[in-house]
Design a protein around this nucleic acid. Structure first.
Lengths: 119, 119
DNA sequence: TCCATATGTCGACGATAATCGACATATTAT
DNA sequence: ATAATATGTCGATTATCGTCGACATATGGA
């Protein structure tokens, strides 16, 4: 957990992670990320290594490029850890967080067991 | 946000934060925390300063002791930031997190606008 | 094969962070 | 006022981190 939090506690890395969250499973090539943030490829490379090593990113080769995308299992673990910790210990800390999440929800028909729900 | 994540990306500080989350509004004296983690008082003092400076802790004087407790507003901001970011970009990443939170819930009577809900 | 593209690794440097002894400040009791 | 308790601040040391040039590796095309 400390490793994960450490990986996200750096401007560039947090930016990369957030970018890739939005990118979803599709991911993005290392070079394209480097160009987006206007940093040298080797600097980014070490940042990507830190994020991968922490279990927040995955990578796959695609021809000459290496595509990075978020590691959903790892990220889930971090979010669950933080939320559970705070919600178990202090429920009134957690409730408003959930409220603000639910605010953006499209309410579904009750009884549906849809797993790909917006919330 | 980077500052907050950085504050939590250290073994001792994460431990202190988690301890205080469980402690709730009551909080704990600096000295007692130091004894709990078996570290010198001045080392802990700097850690507490980092957490406070990041907006994760509050402090109040109580006689000779200084009582530290979690800053709920600040902590809420961090949790909301992380959850919102991930849920907006990738809903299926968020859903399981919420599910595991709801698993520990005592279901309430519907229609009640109880703010001090367990979830 | 030879070259261009895409990325990773290594090594060095400067910057930032963690630790802790020594000293300073604040509070309360005698 | 003096002492004991509780905490914070300063300064020095060591460790870890971020950056980037130079070199290495991998892939695909001419």
């Amino acid at each position: 957990m400390v490793k994960m939090l450490g990986a996200l506690s750096q401007e560039t890395r947090l930016g990369v992670f957030r970018l890739l969250v939005r990118g979803g499973h599709k991911g993005m090539a290392a070079g394209e990320i480097a160009r987006t943030f206007e940093i040298p490829h080797n600097t980014l490379s070490t940042h990507l290594a830190v994020l991968s090593n922490a279990g927040l990113l995955q990578s796959r080769r695609e021809s000459r490029s290496i595509i990075y995308s978020v590691d959903f299992d790892g990220t889930r673990k971090l979010l669950t850890f933080l939320m559970q910790d705070c919600c178990q210990g202090q429920p009134d800390l957690c409730a408003p967080v959930l409220d603000s999440l639910m605010a953006g929800c499209i309410p579904e028909t009750q009884g549906e067991k849809n797993e790909t729900n917006t919330c």
